[in-house]
């Protein structure tokens, strides 16, 4: 009976850990998306320095969590998000507002998909 109890507790702990992981990734995704939105708004108002600064902030925040993300996300996903944030910064530094807005949209879409893939939904399961 002890073994079964241990197994039930372990299974519950795994599910709890999974739920915490969803929460953490959601929160990280929301924080980065908010900064990317700032970059997009700045680019729309032709404040490309502000957009570049926001892109740098988003990259810094993303990289500061690399210890965790490398544990729970496929490395290809991590690199993809890094690339999208890099593209956003590159477009802002290049001084092209249209390209910066496009890069911000692409980055936001990738971050949202990174967070949503962990959410428990029929689409994610099957």
């Amino acid at each position: 009976m002890k073994k079964e109890l241990f197994a039930a507790i372990l299974l519950a702990a795994l599910f709890f850990g999974a739920l915490v992981n969803i929460r953490v990734l959601d929160s990280l995704g929301e924080s980065i998306t908010a900064i990317v939105d700032d970059a997009e708004r700045a680019a729309r108002s032709h404040d490309l320095d502000g957009a570049a600064q926001a892109a740098e902030d988003a990259t810094r925040l993303w990289e500061s969590r690399s210890g965790y993300t490398h544990l729970v996300l496929r490395h290809s996903v991590i690199e993809d998000v890094s690339d999208k944030l890099g593209d956003l910064a590159k477009a802002a530094y290049a001084g092209n507002p249209g390209e910066t807005v496009g890069a911000a949209k692409a980055a936001r879409s990738r971050i949202e998909s990174m967070a949503s893939i962990e959410r428990v939904r029929a689409g994610s399961i099957f």
């Binding site: 079964e4 039930a8 372990l10 299974l11 795994l14 999974a18 544990l71 729970v72 996300l73 496929r74």
Partner: peptide, 22 residues
């Protein structure tokens, strides 16, 4: 695949272990 975190292997194995014991 070194790009896949180890947890992707460990979690299913632990889940199966729990299933088997239960």
């Amino acid at each position: 695949d070194l790009g896949t975190p180890l947890i992707y292997g460990l979690v299913p194995v632990l889940t199966l272990l729990c299933c088997e014991i239960l």
